[in-house]
Design a binder for these strands. Sequence first.
DNA 1: ATTCTTGCAAACCCTTTGCAAGCTA
DNA 2: TAGCTTGCAAAGGGTTTGCAAGAAT
Lengths: 147, 147
Amino acid sequence: MSEQTAARTDAEVPARPVQRRSGRQRAAVAALLDSEPAFTSAQDLYARLREQGNPIGLATVYRALQALVEDGDVDVLRTGDDGEAVYRRCSTGHHHHLVCRRCGRAVEVEGSAVEAWAQKTAAAHGFTDVDHVVEIFGTCADCTAAR
Amino acid sequence: MSEQTAARTDAEVPARPVQRRSGRQRAAVAALLDSEPAFTSAQDLYARLREQGNPIGLATVYRALQALVEDGDVDVLRTGDDGEAVYRRCSTGHHHHLVCRRCGRAVEVEGSAVEAWAQKTAAAHGFTDVDHVVEIFGTCADCTAAR
DNA sequence: ATTCTTGCAAACCCTTTGCAAGCTA
DNA sequence: TAGCTTGCAAAGGGTTTGCAAGAAT
C-alpha cells in the first residue's frame, strides 16, 4: 500500500432499515474486518478468507462490503495508484483518517478546525452543499522503526 | 460528475528532465486541458478531441496525461463512485481544490491552517513523512443557480 | 538514421451482474 | 415454502501494454 485517496462521503446516509439475513459468509467478512486495523482491499480480504480455510466467493466479498458500507459500518478509500478500493471498520460519526502508507494501519482523527476552514473557504467562493475529503498519510511509528 | 476523491501527492516530484519530443497529439491533449477549467476524464478528453476532428487514439490520450502528471503540470483526482481518474491543468505549488460536484469546475485554494493541523495531528500519533489529501466538494454558484 | 510518438487491438485488473443452487426464517 | 444469500462464470469499464508504422531531430 502506498499513496491513497479518500472516498468517504460526509453526507450522513440514513442507514435504511434493510432486512438482512445473517449469512455465514457475510458475517465472516464483517468479522475479519472487525479484527483488521488497516484499510484492506476486497481482493485481499478474499485471499485471506480462503487461506484461513473459508472457500468464499469473490463476488460475495464485494457484496458483503457493499452492504457494510451501505449500513455505515465500514469506510472506503481509494488507492491513488490504481484506484483499488480499500475498506475499514469505522465508528459512525464524522471523522477523518491518519493512514500509514506502508502498512495501511489507520487512526481515526477529527479536526473541527478543518471542518470550519472547508466551510468558510467554500462559502467564500459561493459554493453550497459543501462536503469535504481529508486524509492524512504518513509512515506510522512502527513502520518508521522497522525501516 | 458527483462524489470524488483526491489523489494529489504532496511530495514534490522533482520533475526529472525527461527528453520529450513535441508530438502533435500530446500537444493537442495539453492544449485542450489548458482551456478546460474543470476536472475532466481521459475518456471525455478523448471523445472531445475526436469530435473536434482530431482522430487521436485513446492510448495516446492516456500516455499524454501520464506525461503531464509526471511533469507536474496536471493534477489528478479520482471519482468516488467509479474510481475514474479526472485531470486538470494546475499551478505547480502545493494547493488543494474546491470542486463543483455538478460541473467539475475547480478552484485552487490553500490553507496553511490545514497544513499545520495535519502535521500536528500526524506527529501526535508518531507518524513521519506526513503528507495529506484535502479536497472540498460542493455545488458552485452557477450550478446552484441553474438548479 | 535513430529515437520517440502514435494507433490499434489485446491484455489487465478491479468490480459488478446473471442465474441456478443453497440456506435461513 | 418464500426469499435472501452464495458461487461461478461472464460481462463491464477504465487503464495499460505490445508491436508495427509514422514523425521528429
